[in-house]
């Protein structure tokens, strides 16, 4: 039985009449890199804000490390949220000092961390003089100061240059390899696919899916097909139980196959109906296909 780090149970948040998070439940186990995926406004940040106790849930509960939430647990959590927030008139060293006092850890690794994120030269400049990328790096250093058991990242690569993005990904991989549990919210599918082991898909505050990334990728098979008479082909597939959906793209038909159906199954079935395919290619499985699929079906 894996150790549960975070367990969310029926969490709901209303902002006036808007339901930002709707009856969300999920479990994050130790060592997972857990992606919370969803378009803008799907409730990712609100969810993270609730589990970090800066937003009060309308209803529902959550536990950290199997315990009801308290500020002591948050000391074990490192976080990089949408905007890096520090005292603008303090230097990185002074900011890390405040942080270390809050987290009740020594601030001795400060200089080392600043070297790691490339801010050592600026360790005595005011935070307000930093560029956006530097602020993100500062947040990175801060999140690692307490040697956390859990790292929470909200859109961690937002606004970073390609080099910065690669560095953040390296950091996530490196941190995960040390056994740190990572929770990552993103609207970038590619990012989640590349870094996460597990994923939860949110839309309008509702959970559409939760499971391992591998599972998702195994589940969806996307094929592109073509025949001489595209209209007949399309007509033959309408309402077919073999497919989940299809989409005409120029002279190709993109077909999302139903569970346990392979490309050859589809081909055989069409052949029986007298349709000969002139083109059949299995597309590389991506989370994106699945994700768009999910969003479409939830509408």
């Amino acid at each position: 039985m894996p150790e549960t780090i975070l367990s969310i149970c029926n969490l709901t948040k209303n902002y006036g009449r808007i339901r930002a998070v709707n009856d969300l439940s999920l479990d994050v186990n130790k060592g997972e890199v857990y992606g919370i995926l969803g378009p803008n406004g799907s409730g990712k940040t609100t969810t993270l804000s609730m589990i970090l106790d800066v937003v009060n849930p309308t209803s529902g509960t959550f536990t950290w490390f199997g315990q009801p939430p308290s500020h002591h647990q948050r000391k074990r959590i490192g976080s990089i949220l949408e905007q890096p927030l520090f005292y603008p008139y303090l230097s990185p060293l002074q900011n890390l000092k405040v942080l270390s006092l809050i987290k009740e850890v020594p601030d001795t690794p400060s200089e080392e961390l600043l070297k790691m994120v490339g801010l050592y030269e600026r360790r005595r400049s005011k935070f307000s003089t930093f560029s956006y990328g530097m602020r993100q790096r500062m947040a990175l250093a801060a999140s690692l100061l307490s040697n956390p058991d859990v790292l929470i990242l909200d859109e961690p690569t937002n606004g970073l240059d390609p080099q910065g993005i690669a560095e953040v990904r390296d950091l996530i991989r490196m941190t995960a390899s040390r056994g740190v549990t990572i929770i990552l919210a993103s609207h970038l599918l590619d990012e989640v696919q590349k870094t996460c082991t597990h994923v939860c898909v949110l839309d309008k505050g509702k959970r559409l899916f939760a499971g391992s990334v591998q599972e998702v990728l195994q589940e969806t098979v996307l094929v592109e097909i073509a025949a001489h008479d595209m209209a007949t082909l399309q007509h033959a597939l309408v309402g077919s139980p073999m497919i989940r959906s299809m989409e005409l793209k120029q002279d190709l038909l993109l077909v999302n196959l139903a569970e346990n159906i392979s490309g050859s199954d589809l081909n055989a079935a069409l052949y029986r109906q007298g349709i000969v395919l002139s083109h059949l290619v299995q597309r590389k499985k991506t989370l994106e296909n699945y994700f768009l699929e999910l969003l479409k079906s939830s509408e």
Partner: peptide, 17 residues
């Protein structure tokens, strides 16, 4: 205005503290 209160709480200060 710097939203450091929010950050303080996230970092592990309790509201009472």
């Amino acid at each position: 205005s710097n939203k450091t209160l929010r950050q303080n709480i996230i970092n592990g200060l309790s509201r009472k503290e």
